[in-house]
Design a protein around this nucleic acid. Sequence first.
DNA 1: GATGAATGAGGTTTCATTCAT
DNA 2: GATGAATGAAACCTCATTCAT
Lengths: 201, 201, 201, 201
Amino acid sequence: MTPTAVRVRRAALELFAERGFHGTGIRQLAERAGVSSASLYHYMGTKEELLVALMTDSLERLVADAQAAVATSSDPVSQLEALVRMHVTAHASRPLDTRVGDHEVEALSEPARAQVVTLRDRYEQLWQEVLAAGLEDGVLRSEHPAVARRALLEMCSGVARWFDPAGPLTLEGLADHYAALACRLLGVSPPTRRGGADICV
Amino acid sequence: MTPTAVRVRRAALELFAERGFHGTGIRQLAERAGVSSASLYHYMGTKEELLVALMTDSLERLVADAQAAVATSSDPVSQLEALVRMHVTAHASRPLDTRVGDHEVEALSEPARAQVVTLRDRYEQLWQEVLAAGLEDGVLRSEHPAVARRALLEMCSGVARWFDPAGPLTLEGLADHYAALACRLLGVSPPTRRGGADICV
Amino acid sequence: MTPTAVRVRRAALELFAERGFHGTGIRQLAERAGVSSASLYHYMGTKEELLVALMTDSLERLVADAQAAVATSSDPVSQLEALVRMHVTAHASRPLDTRVGDHEVEALSEPARAQVVTLRDRYEQLWQEVLAAGLEDGVLRSEHPAVARRALLEMCSGVARWFDPAGPLTLEGLADHYAALACRLLGVSPPTRRGGADICV
Amino acid sequence: MTPTAVRVRRAALELFAERGFHGTGIRQLAERAGVSSASLYHYMGTKEELLVALMTDSLERLVADAQAAVATSSDPVSQLEALVRMHVTAHASRPLDTRVGDHEVEALSEPARAQVVTLRDRYEQLWQEVLAAGLEDGVLRSEHPAVARRALLEMCSGVARWFDPAGPLTLEGLADHYAALACRLLGVSPPTRRGGADICV
DNA sequence: GATGAATGAGGTTTCATTCAT
DNA sequence: GATGAATGAAACCTCATTCAT
């Protein structure tokens, strides 16, 4: 990718996150990227295809990272912790990607939307499998697993909307925090883990 | 409000929630409301003023309900529980309102945006006051109160994106669930409350 | 149709005939019709749909007139003469319609093109049936009927490109001329018709 | 001309004939010619200059061939037959050239249009001179010579729109056909020519 | 109260063309 | 000789809005 191509994608990411897909004009995009609006079309197909590219890249990266997270262990609790840490870190460090991914699915028309939704489902499927394994093993507990999964994801995704890297919390600290919270949410008894350290949620 | 006026607001709420403010055209609005696009202007000022009205109504109701929730008790823990129950119930039962309120603030231009942000801040201020009181009293505990407040709100607001009234969970059950979760998030020792019942989060 | 709608169609007909469909801009169209380019869209779908409407109307009229012409007699020679007179008259008096119909079929995209081609084929089918009947009866003669049909049509259609109503020839005279010519082209022996008058082609 | 230059001209001829000058984009041209759109500009001036070149070449060839046809004899009837045979052969064997020449004159801007029209007029002038000589000699007869000339030309040019070299008719046969037809059109008494053979038109 | 007609501004995209490499 | 990158102008079309009826 040429520097200009990178600038175009960066501009799109910023503007789609700030103002939404429909709220972003092609001319604003061009201005932010530092090219003419006609030149934009060397680096993208249509505005929508640009959105699809951004979403697809972001989701594919998330899926790959999730697969890697799951692969670190065969213990559902450890897998869940790894997923949460990865998810929170991703959302805190790349909030633009995730905000666009979360808010602009409705802006896509078929068949692009179906493709993106498929990717997102694949990602959530990984969480579901880990949760299901943990619930079957009895190391995780929940009255409403489906609800718990969504609540957990919403909570973790929320960091993209407020986390400030210049704030008092490091990415590492944030990930720790949320991993512990996830365990509580799913009934993992804390004392038996990590030498019983006093983890304040 | 005449029936048509109600239909216009309902249509706007649905479409702004579905497709976003910028993604909704005045003609779609008219069609959904069952009037001509010219007639729309008997029931609203501009498209943006319609959005402002929807947001303002929704937020004012939320603020009023929050004030009522806080007034039910002078105990910070009870107040927090009441806030959570109210917030979750509102988001689960009126997801369109809250989705519009959460996503479309950026679509407003000044000075409308400032007004809406002021209302939202007033709402969050109520949470902050309850949390601050609880933390000072020592009945709530948190390493990072600001983080905890936002994480809690994100988690609770999330229900607007997934709660299904036809699903297995009642609004009541959902509110119970989240009230308990909020307590855990803020270090309220469960055994001392409600006769030590085993509340599964 | 409102006066403005008529002006829009007239403008389109003139410009599409003069400069071609692709050579005519929406702004020229608007200017010629005396409306703004945005107002144009009250009277048409897209530019292409306007072209389709013009072509369809013109062809349907031609087909109807051809059916009427054929219905005037059961004698193939008389039918052919009626067809030629009608065709020549139509092309001489409405040259814009026929020029657009002849030149701009390629500008259409599917499925509109197929519809228009179907109409045109239906029209030519009428000629073919008359010719076939005449050939079978032996009152018409041709070495290459298919060639004769196309040559005849081309010759008759050509008047749209040069006939001048202010010139020395009346529409009536023109039609006479071409009817006689068609008879010669198809081997009708002139002496037996119209009392053997000296018809100069 | 280099092979690439030939390919460019061939591509332009095909596309201008298929889709018209305004309907053909520079990028389609490049693709059909197998070069980049920038490279196109090594082989042409502007798109319009390319059209002018194609038309000029085609018309100059036509003029030269017409002059040669006229030079074959001093008998107006023979000259007319030679012109018709040449014109029909040209239109049947090079339909792209003639279609572009016939349809795209309007696409030219001045002064190019004037040049092309001058060439076309020079061509038609040759026909007119032959017809005038024949009429004066009394070997050709027509009520409306101007009409006859245009009708004759339209009829002959029409072959470019339908002649199929793979069809039943050879170029030679086609030329014979049209030469005989032209004679009839202009009142040449057939019996006195070619030993009175029964020429079926 | 209701709407068809109208429009200036702006939407996204494509145009023919140039130029540095 | 060839081309990727770039662009001003213009393409078609839709926008939110107004107004006479």
